[in-house]
Design a protein around this nucleic acid. Structure first.
Lengths: 197, 197
DNA sequence: AACTATAACGAACTGGTGTTCAAAGTCCGA
DNA sequence: TCGGACTTTGAACACCAGTTCGTTATAGTT
């Protein structure tokens, strides 16, 4: 990987192109798997020669890191911001899940890659930061949920919610009958006590 | 892959060993990923030379097929049997989810592999049968759920349930505080109308 | 227009991995 | 105990994909 340009005008283009590579990588990895996607394929879909990718990234693994960061960082940031606002617990949970579902469906490829490469991320020093982000996010969800009256065990409700939302990446289609907000509300309604039934 | 022995006594040992290989493969694939697990590693964990694996399987992909079949076939069979019995709808759903969760936690490695290699399974003629099994199972769940009074949209409840149960493979630990039956009951309670709250 | 930082090329390199196979070892059945 | 069916070996093979790097093209800057 060569250095980031020093000239401001070029640096902007460099960053933009780098982001494009991450985006395409997420798409390719989601469809064909991380290992099954070759650097040559990836380069080809961008109209580049193989070696050109190494101008933007140190290697294949670094691409995966970038995908995970691009997924987790904005989510963590937005969620933290949301929880800082003073609001009734259940409205806050609703808002959190809304935000989360929207993020998941907007980063579907990232999510699928994240889930598929779980075994990589679960171990190894390289992935410590990613694991920390996920753990931090889950903690935020747990806190928000903990302030609400939920049906059944708190802990199980949390795990159920994580399952539902993460699974959304696997079935959501942009032109499906439900928009993200409806999905989120539906999920929350299942968890909260006193939501009818 | 050589042929299955004709002599009954040997055939039994052959089948047992073959099953062991599938089991170990599931374990290894779940921990290190399908592509990152080499045939040499796999052979080593079984105390075999590399080539010996090809006595039991035609190749690496065939191992993956076997894992998926070993996962889906008994589940589909048991579920079909259960739904054939005449029972109140909600009790039947409860029994189904119980069975399902128990199956998931008993085949955690299989499940993890199944989820991680989703992209492989989703396309390709080779995986048609596996896709059909999953689809058939989901259909059975949908039917069982459709006979119950659930909170919110039926379709969303189904997707939520699929998410919860499949996700269970990722967090369940044998010595955790909840046994499979409690988990299943918790899930069902979230879905059914009139379960308190 | 010339200069230089940047971007891209693309072929060669390198290491590794799935698979094969002939030979040797093992053990059931008679 | 003997024969042959079955198991296992382990090294060679063939292929492939990630990475490197010297070279060439491009385009901002003066």
């Amino acid at each position: 990987m060569s250095a980031r340009p020093t000239r401001p005008a070029l640096r902007e283009r460099y960053d933009r192109r780098q982001q494009q590579v991450v985006y395409q990588a997420a798409k390719a990895f989601a469809k064909r798997g991380y290992d099954q996607t070759t650097m040559q394929e990836l380069a080809a879909t961008m109209g580049l020669a193989t070696g050109a990718l190494y101008h933007y990234f140190g290697g294949k693994e670094e691409l995966l890191t970038a995908i995970c960061d691009q997924l987790m960082e904005p989510l963590l940031e937005q969620t933290t911001e949301l929880l800082a606002a003073d609001q009734p617990a259940e409205a806050q949970l609703r808002a959190l899940v809304c935000l989360w579902v929207a993020h998941v469906v907007e980063h579907r490829d990232h999510m699928l890659v994240f889930q598929q490469e779980r075994h990589l991320i679960e171990s190894g020093e390289r992935w410590r930061k990613v694991r920390a982000s996920r753990k931090a996010f889950e903690r935020l969800v747990a806190d928000a949920l903990g302030r609400c009256r939920v049906r059944g065990e708190q802990r199980l409700a949390l795990l159920a919610l994580l399952g539902m939302v993460n699974h959304t990446a696997q079935w959501y289609r942009p032109r499906g009958p439900l928009v993200p907000e409806e999905i989120a509300d539906g999920y929350v309604a299942l968890l909260l006590a006193g939501s009818g039934g």
